[in-house]
């Protein structure tokens, strides 16, 4: 009914109405339920940034095309959420067994000042071997976060500073399209099927 009314107006209004409906569907029923509308990550193919992985290789969003991707933001000086997220992801990857090799798993630091390539290399070694650590200039990190619609903020403390940051894990299919998020500390029973779904989209498109 509402939709029909919109159709009577100019094309722009129709588009806006459609977007509203799409956003509503996405929020209520869609796979992006935990993600507020308008903050959906861009497809990886629309992102532009250049970072360095923990082995010193130049990487960017294009590095992730071809396999489904789990990407998340954090920092190695984070004592609670980040090791927990990395452990959770390591557990999901263990549950996927050999299928984990068909995934890109990327931990992008929001604290490039402290998280150098060497620090990232040291840190990711403690978790599942599939996890890659990405760092780079503050400017390029900001561009990456913008593409993922992730936020972060430096907060001074008595002891230096800490970082507030988006703790969700972003899931993309092999084509680089956003599939869903996995919330911080989401139980394995929910997380692993979400990853499998992102992997299935890859298979469907391939056949």
């Amino acid at each position: 009914m509402r939709r029909r009314k919109f159709l009577g107006y100019a094309g722009a209004v129709t588009a806006a109405g459609g977007l509203t409906l799409l956003a509503g569907w996405w929020r209520v029923d869609g796979p992006g339920a935990p993600t507020p509308p308008g903050t959906r990550p861009l497809p990886l193919t629309k992102m532009e940034f250049k970072l360095t992985d923990h082995e010193g290789q130049t990487v960017g969003p294009e590095t992730l095309i071809g396999k489904p991707t789990l990407a998340f933001f954090g920092f190695t000086f984070c004592p609670d959420v980040c090791p927990t997220t990395l452990s959770d992801i390591s557990g999901w990857l263990d549950a996927l067994g050999e299928d984990a090799e068909r995934l890109n798993v990327v931990f992008i630091t929001v604290d490039p000042e402290r998280d150098t390539v060497e620090i990232m290399e040291d840190y990711v070694a403690y978790f599942h071997p599939a996890i890659r650590g990405w760092t780079g200039s503050a400017d390029q990190i900001a561009r990456a976060a913008e593409g993922f619609r992730a936020t972060y903020e430096r907060v001074p403390t008595d002891n230096g500073y800490t970082m507030n940051h988006t703790a969700s894990v972003f899931l993309f299919d092999a084509a680089g399209d956003f599939v869903s998020t996995i919330d911080y500390h989401e139980p394995r029973e929910f997380a692993v099927p979400k990853i499998r779904r992102a992997m299935k989209e890859e298979t469907t498109e391939a056949t």
Binding site: C78, N164, T166, A167, D183, Y184
Partner: peptide, 18 residues
């Protein structure tokens, strides 16, 4: 030197702070 109890909270946008 500085042991303290901290609380991590995650808001509805998925942003964690401590």
């Amino acid at each position: 030197e500085m042991p303290e109890i901290h609380r991590t909270s995650t808001d509805d946008q998925g942003v964690s702070s401590m």
